[in-house]
Structures are given as C-alpha cells and as structure tokens.
Amino acid sequence: MSLLKIENLHATIDDKEILKGINLEMGPGEIHAIMGPNGSGKSTLSYVLAGRDGYEVTEGSVTFKGKDLLELEADERANEGIFLAFQYPVEIPGVAGMTFLRESYNAKLRHHGEPEADAMQFLKMVRAKAKTLNMNDDMLKRPVNVGFSGGEKKRNEILQMAVLEPSLAILDETDSGLDIDALKLVSEGVNALRNEGRSMLIITHYQRLLNHIQPDFVHVLAHGKIQRSGGKELALELEANGYADFAEEAA
C-alpha cells in the first residue's frame, strides 16, 4: 500500500493556479526527489501537503496512510507524521529550542492519546540526537533559529525531524544556503534517519544534494505538473542539460 498518493492535484494561491494536476505515489521507505526550475510549484506542493493557510486545493485528492489528508489541519497532519523541513526556518524569539522541541513532541504524544514525555528522559534523548548533528547544548538553549547561521538553521530542522520521527519528511530546498561542509553534515543527518518505514520527498534545484542523499525516484516538476519521472540517473541528465527541455511544454 502506498504511504502517500497524490491524484490530479490542482491548487491555487490568490486565484492563480500553481499546481495543475500532480500525480505522485510514494511507498513506505522510498525516497523521491522533485526537481524543477524556479516557479515550477515545488514549494507550493510542499506547503499544500503540509496544510499551510492560503493555498486552495481546487481539484484532486491526497491520501496519506489511507486518510484524506486535505481534511486535516496543519497541526493534525504534523501529528499524523508529516514533517516539513523549511527552506527558510522561522525565528521564534524567547522560546528555547529545547522547549519548542518538548512542546512539539508532547503535542504528538497527546494526539496519539499517550502520556507526555518524562522531562529528564526527553532531555537525554534530544541531547544524544543533537550530538550526532554536531549541535551542542548551547544551541538547544538559544531561542529557536534566532541568530542562527544558515547551516545551524538547517541542522536544527534535521534535529526536529530526528526527534519527531515522521513517516513522511518533506525537505524543501534543504541544500540552499549551505556550504559543502554543512551540506555534508546535514546529508549525513538525513541519511541516518533513513529506514524502511520513513519516506522522504526531497525538493531541490540541484543534483549536488542527491549525491549525498541518493533517491529511489526523481521527478521533474515544471509548469505545475510532473513532466518526467525516472531513477536517480534522471538527476544527472538534468544537471547536464538544465531545465530547458521543459520550457516549451508550457501549458
């Protein structure tokens, strides 16, 4: 059974149609990459899946774990296992990273009718995971993303993902703004989270991220539709030829 099934998805923002009939099916444990030029609808797709306000689905359906995903609020989708690693992680002044993680983690437990986590054990668990991402205690005490460098912000996203253990992680241009070392660190963090129960949807412009995180499938998104799908070799082809091939297929 598929984990995520997107059928003929159309979505608009401010009455402008951005997604024009997306079809995509992902099985558990699969890694799919979505590549495409600027303005092709990549980020819109991630926001629509995560349930951001302001995006209207006009046609089509999204089924996640057999449920109608579009019926759920953003927080319910998160608690059901959808995680979006933001392209531009948001600053929340005054809220310590650890506090934010605990609130999120407990929200998920409550959603599943489980008791909240023991504070000490939770602290230990987060510290251990932070360490693998080269994040020290000081970063967990600082307010969420405030004054973080680009690399720190992205690592913080991966830490949240590690703690919340989603079944579908959407990585929205996680490679943007990262230097080579940071890219490597973040990729290692992501790879460590790969397992047969966790699917990932990796949104990127560039092949370089896919050198570090090997996808099972690659899709080209342009003009609001998936224009081509293939294996990881498709990414290399795109790297060589650019997106020019898809320009003429404008709707």
């Binding site: 349930g51 302001g54 609020e73 927080d75 948001v90 999120s104 929200a107 919340l164």
Partner: peptide, 15 residues
C-alpha cells in the same frame, strides 16, 4: 506572523 504560526503548527502545535 503567519510564518511563525505555520511553523509551530507544522511541528504539531494547535493554533
């Protein structure tokens, strides 16, 4: 901001 609200909700917090 809408960004802050969405960010928190994407991490599972109710509005």
């Amino acid at each position: 901001s809408d960004d802050q609200l969405f960010y928190c909700m994407q991490r599972g917090l109710s509005a």
